[in-house]
Structure formats: C-alpha cells, structure tokens
Amino acid sequence: MKKPFEALVRAHGATVLRVCRAVAGPDDAEDAWSEAFLAALRAYPDLPAGANVEAWLVTIAHRKAIDQLRSRRRAPVPAGEVPEPRHTRTQPAFAGWQRDLWEDLATLPDKQRAAVVYHHVAGLPHREVAAILGGTAAAARRASADGIAALRRTHAEGTDDDRDR
C-alpha cells in the first residue's frame, strides 16, 4: 500500500537536501529540492508498488540538481556587476574542505559523480546504486571509489593553489 506523500517528505527530505547541496551547491539547492519533490508528487501515483522510494527520490533530486547547476552556468552574469562573495552564510561545514564540493563533483564523469552522490551523500548501498545506474554492485563500488580518488586529487591540487596564492 502506498504511503501518504507527506510521509516521504518527512522521511527523505533531509537526504534529498544533502544531495541537492552536494550537486547544485547551497545557492541552488533549495530550488532543486522544491523541483524534485514537486516532480515526485506528480509521478507518485504511478510509482510501482514495492519500488525503492528513497532511491527513486534521490534519482529525481540528482537530476533536478544537475538541471539547476546547468541553468545557473548558462545564466549570463550582467557586465560590470561584481559577483557577491559566495557561500559566506550558507556554506556547509565540512572539515578541511576549502573548495566548493559541488564544483569539483561537476568535473567528474557522469557515472562517477552519480555513484559518489548516491553512495556517499545519499547513503544508498552500492547494490541500490547499481540498480539505478545499471551494471553490478562491484561496478558501482568501483565508480564511486574512482570518483572519490579524483575528488581527493582535485582537493589536494586546490589546497596547493591556495597555498601558492
């Protein structure tokens, strides 16, 4: 039997917010969250009984967050306007991470990024990540590990850059 949609928002709202922050960045995360839950509400009556609701929501959130990121990139910055310093208030506190995680994540190949977000941010087991991405759990684990290794390299470079400046 299908739960009332309110129960999904309560159970998974925080996880979806983490996914949106990680992929779209704090400035666009809330729009991505709203878009994701509205799209989910629209499709919910047709979701097959027994579907993994969390994986379904996380997949929608990931897609909406990428949409937000892309539309932000496309939006022209008006000439002569000095961009405001970003993330002074909204920056998530993750220890020692000086660069913007979402910007580094955006540089990963699609499959690696998705694997990192689904497993490390949303907390889905590799088996469920594999069900979303296709392929085996081992392949999902490898994509996630490769993505993390790439992020570590970027992070290390970023820290070096900061030191040189």
């Binding site: 983490r18 809330e30 993750f94 220890a95 991470w97 990192v116 941010v121 907390g123």
Partner: peptide, 15 residues
Amino acid sequence: MTEIADLQMPDDADT
C-alpha cells in the same frame, strides 16, 4: 571522505 556525508547545516530543521 567523511566530509562528503557531512553536509548538514545547523538550520536544517528550519530549512
């Protein structure tokens, strides 16, 4: 990579 999972912010409940 614990920092990736740690994306909570203090005002999450309000948000």
